[in-house]
């Protein structure tokens, strides 16, 4: 049985993205001290996908991150760390398993639906089911939670945590939890970095599916140019607003991810002793700034007062520019590490 009160000595470090934050914090807890951006890069977290057939709050899904769990999966694989993952049908069993593992002093990462997390600011409570947190203890019926996108650790009641772990709908977590089981004495970070870069170049350039990677960005750009005609002004504005929320709202972020990746490239340059990566990092920063410009343009439509007539083609142009620049950047990056 798990004692009623239990607190694992877990260091909460705030991060920009939930999954890379959880990965970095879990790895650091087990002695592999890496930054969020390094985990982000090794985990090959940069991604783009536009899936109009998956709806979130009735609007098409634009995602800047890969399948949930991918970052940790790739990071652990790259570093030779072993992790265990479980999914559950039965909430009782899911909570008992959680209690058992934290009872052994192991912090547990899990996928949750933010709608049910009581500490989330009300304005951010949407049905978004791919949020990652770490549970590192409990006090009575309250669980101690390190949610990496928040300044400090928080608490979450058992009832709320069950709801969050068994949130329904798109990307339902199904009680998914994970923890590290074995960490090697020596890890080859350089090798993991190269693998991470290779993986990202592959997803951004080589997936033979038009809605993913650089091709996906181009596809979205072409769609956006047609939205006002196809959907009407108000629907188009809602769609654009949704893209921007997916891009800029806490923890996701298209521009933000470019900046994290640029930070990773700086670290990689140092670790690999490869100066040319610094230049690519700089280009990545510029692309991130372009994405921010896109968001700035986009919200003018959300306010319902497009300044100089129709700004949709202008937005499409910015996106196309992002796609072209990223296309070139990932090709150069792939050449550099091959």
């Amino acid at each position: 049985m798990v004692p009623n009160s239990l607190k694992i000595n877990f260091v909460h470090r705030q991060s920009a993205h939930c999954e890379s934050g959880v990965a970095a914090n879990l790895l650091s807890h087990h002695g592999i001290n890496i930054s969020e951006s390094l985990a982000f890069g090794i985990g090959a977290a940069l991604f783009f996908g536009y899936f109009p057939f998956i709806k979130i709050n009735g609007l098409p899904l634009t995602t800047f991150r890969g399948a949930t769990g991918q970052i940790l999966k790739r990071a652990t694989k790259g570093l030779g760390v072993q992790a265990k993952r479980h999914r559950f049908r039965d909430p009782e069993k899911a909570m008992n398993a959680l209690d058992r593992i934290i009872g052994q002093g192991i912090p547990v990462g899990m996928q949750t639906g933010v709608y049910w997390l009581p500490y989330f600011p009300p304005a951010l409570r949407f049905h978004f089911n791919a949020h990652n947190i770490v549970v590192y203890g409990k006090e009575g019926t309250e669980y101690l939670v390190s949610d990496p996108v928040f300044d400090e650790p928080v608490v979450c009641s058992r009832t709320d945590l069950i709801k969050a772990r068994f949130a329904q709908g798109a990307l339902a977590p199904k009680g998914k939890m994970y923890y590290l089981t074995r960490v090697p004495d020596h890890v080859d970070i350089a090798m993991a970095i190269v693998r991470g870069i290779r993986d990202v170049c592959k997803t951004m350039l080589k997936i033979p599916f038009p809605l993913i990677g650089v091709r996906g960005i181009r596809f979205l750009a072409r769609q956006i140019a047609n939205w006002p005609e196809k959907l009407g002004e108000s629907r188009a504005s809602l769609n654009i607003g949704h893209v921007i929320r997916m891009q800029e709202e806490i923890g996701t972020g298209g521009a933000g991810f470019r900046f994290i990746y640029a930070a990773f490239l700086q670290e990689a340059a140092e670790i690999l002793g490869e100066k040319r990566l610094l230049n690519i990092s700089k280009r990545m920063t510029e692309i991130g700034d372009r994405w921010r410009e896109f968001a700035l343009f986009g919200v003018r439509n959300c306010k319902g007062r497009a300044l100089e007539g129709n700004t949709y083609p202008a937005m499409a142009d910015i996106l196309l520019d992002c796609a072209n620049q990223e296309d070139k950047l990932f090709r150069d990056l792939a050449d550099l590490i091959s």
Binding site: Q14, G241, R245, E248, G256, F259, Q266, V299
Partner: peptide
Amino acid sequence: IKYAIDDDGCYVLAPSVGWEPANIA
């Protein structure tokens, strides 16, 4: 947390209370 570059072009972590376009969306 936002990733941003300092005067030397090195990445640092900077806390932010939000961004207007995100607030509007």
